[in-house]
C-alpha cells in the first residue's frame, strides 16, 4: 500500500511540470502578441483562432530543423548544456507553495512539492545553478562569440546574486524563517487597516532591488547581454540549432514563470487576498480561489517582464556592472540596516 501523501505529491509534481511547460509555451505567444501591440502590428494571427496554435507550430518547426553540431565543439558538453539549462529552470519550482492546504477525505495536504526548512535558500541555490547551462553551452561551442556570451552571463549572475541575497535577507529577518510557507503565512491580514499586509508595502526598496536582480538573473532585457545580437551574433547559443536552441529559449520562459511566482510569493502575499477568508469558509474552495489569485499575480509579473523588454533599450556592459556593484548593493545594504533598526525598535 502506497501512502496517500506520496500519490498526492507525485500527482502534484506532474501537474506543476505540465503547468510550467504550458505557461512557458503560451508566454512565447503572449510575448509576440505584446510585442505586436507595442509596435502597432498584429503579432501571430494565422495558426488557429487569434494565432493560438502558434506555440505548437513553433515547437514542431524546431523539432524538424536540421540539428547541427560544429566539428570543433566538445560534443558531449555541447549536447548536454541545453538539458542542464532546462533542468535547473524546472527544479526551482519545487518549493513554491501554490495555494493553501486542500482537504481530501479529512486529511489536509500542503499544495507544495517540498516544504523544506531552507526553502528560499533552495531557490537561491538553483537560480545560481542556472548559469551552468549557458556557460557550458557557450564554451563547448568553440566559438568566440559564444564564449563571450557565456562569460558575460557568469559575471552578470555573480554580480546580481549579491544584491538579490541582501534584498532577500531583509524579508527573512522580518519573517524570522526561511520557509516559503511561513513567508506567505506572515503576509496574511491587513496593514494600517486599508493595505494588504504584503511585504511589498513594508519593503518597497528591497522589492525594487529584488525585481531588478530577477530581471538580470533571468537574462531578460534590458539585461540580455549574454545573447546581445548586435554585438555577439546570438551570444551563447550562436552555434545551436533545432530543438537544442529551442530548449535554451524555452528555459528562459520557464525561468520567467518561476521567478514571477517567487516574486509573487515573497513580496505580494502568494495565494493570499485580504478578506477572502470572510466570504469563503470551505477549505477546498478557498484553495481553488487562492490558486487563481496566485496565478493572476504570476501573469501580471510575466506581463511586466514583457512590458519592460519592449520598452527599455539594452544596457551597455559597463553600465550593467556599475548598476550592480555601485548602486544596487549599497542600496540593499542600507535597506538591510534600516530593517534591522526597525526590528530592534519594535522589540523595545
Amino acid at each position: 500500500m502506497i501512502e496517500p501523501i506520496l500519490i498526492f505529491k507525485f500527482a502534484l509534481a506532474i501537474i506543476v511540470f505540465a503547468i510550467s511547460l504550458g505557461v512557458a509555451a503560451y508566454a512565447t505567444y503572449g510575448e509576440r502578441k505584446i510585442a505586436g501591440l507595442f509596435q502597432d502590428r498584429f503579432g501571430p494571427n494565422n495558426a488557429g483562432p487569434w494565432g493560438l496554435l502558434q506555440p505548437l507550430a513553433d515547437g514542431g518547426k524546431m523539432f524538424f530543423k536540421e540539428d547541427f553540431i560544429p566539428a570543433a565543439s566538445e560534443k558531449f558538453l555541447f549536447i548536454i548544456a541545453p538539458g542542464i539549462a532546462m533542468f535547473t529552470a524546472l527544479m526551482t519550482s519545487a518549493v513554491i507553495p501554490w495555494t493553501s492546504a486542500i482537504v481530501i477525505a479529512g486529511i489536509p495536504y500542503q499544495v507544495q512539492l517540498a516544504d523544506i526548512d531552507v526553502g528560499i535558500l533552495y531557490v537561491f541555490g538553483f537560480v545560481s545553478m542556472g548559469v551552468y547551462g549557458i556557460m557550458i553551452g557557450g564554451w563547448a561551442s568553440n566559438n568566440k562569440y559564444s564564449l563571450m556570451g557565456a562569460i558575460r552571463a557568469s559575471s552578470q549572475m555573480i554580480s546580481y546574486e549579491l544584491a538579490m541575497g541582501l534584498a532577500l535577507l531583509a524579508v527573512i529577518m522580518m519573517t524570522g524563517s526561511l520557509g516559503l510557507n511561513e513567508i506567505v503565512d506572515h503576509q496574511k491580514g491587513s496593514l494600517f487597516g486599508f493595505l494588504p499586509n504584503w511585504n511589498v508595502f513594508k519593503q518597497p526598496v528591497g522589492f525594487l532591488v529584488f525585481l531588478i536582480c530577477a530581471f538580470a538573473e533571468t537574462n531578460r532585457a534590458p539585461f540580455d547581454l549574454p545573447e546581445c545580437e548586435t554585438e555577439l551574433v546570438g551570444g551563447y547559443h550562436t552555434e545551436y540549432s533545432s530543438m537544442k536552441l529551442g530548449l535554451f529559449l524555452f528555459a528562459e520562459y520557464i525561468n520567467m514563470f518561476v521567478s514571477s511566482a517567487i516574486i509573487a510569493t515573497i513580496y505580494f502575499g502568494g495565494y493570499n487576498l485580504p478578506l477572502i477568508g470572510r466570504f469563503i469558509t470551505d477549505p477546498n474552495t478557498l484553495a481553488v480561489v487562492g490558486f487563481l489569485v496566485f496565478f493572476v499575480k504570476i501573469l501580471f509579473f510575466i506581463f511586466l517582464y514583457m512590458w519592460v523588454r519592449w520598452t527599455l533599450p539594452r544596457f551597455r556592459y559597463d553600465q550593467l556592472m556599475h548598476l550592480g556593484w555601485k548602486s544596487l548593493i549599497p542600496i540593499a545594504i542600507i535597506n538591510l540596516l534600516v530593517t534591522a533598526g526597525f526590528l530592534i525598535l519594535k522589540e523595545y
Partner: peptide
Amino acid sequence: AQFLFIVQIIVYSGAIMVLFLF
C-alpha cells in the same frame, strides 16, 4: 543537514566554481 546542503550548493557549486570556470 538541509542548511549545510544548500550552503554547499550556493557557495561551492554556485559561486566558487562559477568563478573558477570563468
